[in-house]
Design a protein around this nucleic acid. Structure first.
Length: 116
DNA sequence: GATATGACGTCAT
DNA sequence: CATGACGCCATAT
């Protein structure tokens, strides 16, 4: 019991991703101690209800290399829009991980001030 | 408990 | 660089 459910741990890790940065499914998995569970992380995010999605920045989770995982609905498009809105830059269709990965990197553009 | 599914990752082709 | 096959993990049935 003391151990939170897998989904709960995933959501906590995703909430920890700072604005203007992104993490890959694999990195999130590693953060919660399951380095091979990238796929399961996707399952957890997929299970997010619209209500829960309000408190979990799911759009900051991308595929390896900064790719936006294809899926049904307006998801991918919305994700790109949100990331751009917080200052994340893209190289073509993929996020520029060199600048925005949560993992140590070199140059990091300042997150764009929140719209209001 | 066995099988199928999926917002993944990596390697081979 | 585009595809496909496999391996992994947590659920769904």
């Amino acid at each position: 019991m003391g151990r939170p459910d897998f989904f709960a741990r995933v959501y906590a890790a995703v909430r920890a991703i700072p604005r203007g940065r992104v993490a890959t499914y694999g990195q999130v998995a590693a953060m919660i101690g399951v380095p091979q569970g990238a796929r399961a992380v996707g399952w957890a995010l997929r299970a997010l209800s619209p209500a829960a999605a309000r408190s979990v920045p799911w759009h900051r989770v991308v595929g390896a290399g900064g790719r936006i995982s294809p899926r049904a609905g307006p998801g991918p498009e919305l994700q790109r829009r949100r990331l751009r809105a917080e200052g994340v830059t893209f190289r073509g269709a993929v996020v520029d991980m060199k600048r925005h990965s949560v993992v140590a990197g070199a140059s990091r553009p300042r997150p764009r001030p929140r719209a209001r």
